[in-house]
Simulated scan of single mutants.
Amino acid sequence: MSETDVKTRLLEAAKPHVPFDGWSETVLRLAAAEAEIEPAIVDAVCPRGAVDLALAYHEAGDAAMVAALQEADLGAMRFRDRVAFAVRTRLELVEDRELVRRGMTLFALPQHGPDGTRAMWRTADRIWTALGDTSRDINWYTKRATLSGVYGATVLYWLGDESDGQARTWEFLDRRIEDVMQIEKLKAKARENRLVAGLMAGPLAFMGRIKAPEDRQQAGMPGRWQARN
């Protein structure tokens, strides 16, 4: 039985209990007992305990989103609509918002905050990758940082949204994306302005040496310096 199979079985057994006891060690052990998985195997696939199970749940959600995006007719959409569609798809695939709420509570703890940040970054990275992003310079980072912020804010709004079909959440998402688009328009105008371009020549040359990570498994790690010729 592979590690993925073990985590899948643990998740299926854990989901009914998470709304009541959170992503906790109690739930992890209960899920292991119900799935008839030996404690030693659980410790091997979840060495940090319940936090690894919560991260596996987030990863499964990302995988489902990517699969859905691959099936969607993205080419018929405006670019901004593709981004909104991707974020909306990620959230609409959640079967129980309480599972996400409990995850947000876990990752709000200081010791698990970096895990939550990396999880959102990877979601943003997978969205950009699915949408065909080819940037390899500093834009690789700024796109993911911006979308991480949009995604995180949207999740928080979505968790408290009781409107029909979460309509208010999708309106909120559209407004956040519009804000980002306005910033991009201002950046484009600044690049066209010769005076601004001259003043920014030095900083832009510096930032131009920042490259996206080569290892896709380290998608949240710092970039590298471009080697001199």
Rank of each mutant, 00 (worst) to 15 (best):
A31V: 11
T8P: 00
R176Y: 13
A63I: 11
R191P: 13
S24R: 00
W158D: 12
Y141H: 08
V18S: 02
T123H: 05
K185T: 14
W140Y: 14
T26R: 08
A108Y: 03
G132T: 03
R144F: 02
L199Q: 06
M65S: 09
R191E: 15
G22D: 00
V94F: 08
G165R: 05
L159H: 15
A54W: 04
A86V: 10
R29Y: 14
K211V: 08
D52A: 14
I127N: 01
E192F: 02
I41F: 10
A201H: 12
L69T: 04
A153E: 11
V27D: 00
E38H: 15
G49E: 07
D164F: 01
A197G: 13
V51Y: 04
S2E: 07
A60R: 12
I41H: 08
F206W: 13
L53C: 09
K189C: 07
A63Y: 04
G116K: 06
M207Q: 07
K7C: 09
M207G: 13
W140V: 04
D81K: 04
Q217M: 07
G75L: 02
R209Q: 08
A86P: 05
V150S: 01
M120Q: 12
Q217A: 12
L195P: 09
M120S: 14
Q182W: 15
V87L: 02
M77H: 07
G49S: 12
A32H: 02
E3L: 06
S148C: 14
G132M: 02
A205E: 07
A33Q: 15
A167R: 03
L11Q: 08
G22Q: 00
F206M: 06
A14I: 09
H17C: 01
R102N: 08
S2I: 06
N139H: 06
A60C: 03
M120R: 07
K7L: 15
Q218M: 08
R82F: 05
K185V: 12
A108C: 04
M65E: 07
T4R: 05
A86Q: 03
R48P: 05
V18K: 01
L28Q: 04
A63F: 08
I138P: 01
T4C: 03
T117K: 02
L156I: 14
G61N: 08
A32D: 03
A188V: 05
L109P: 03
K211H: 13
L195W: 12
P16Y: 05
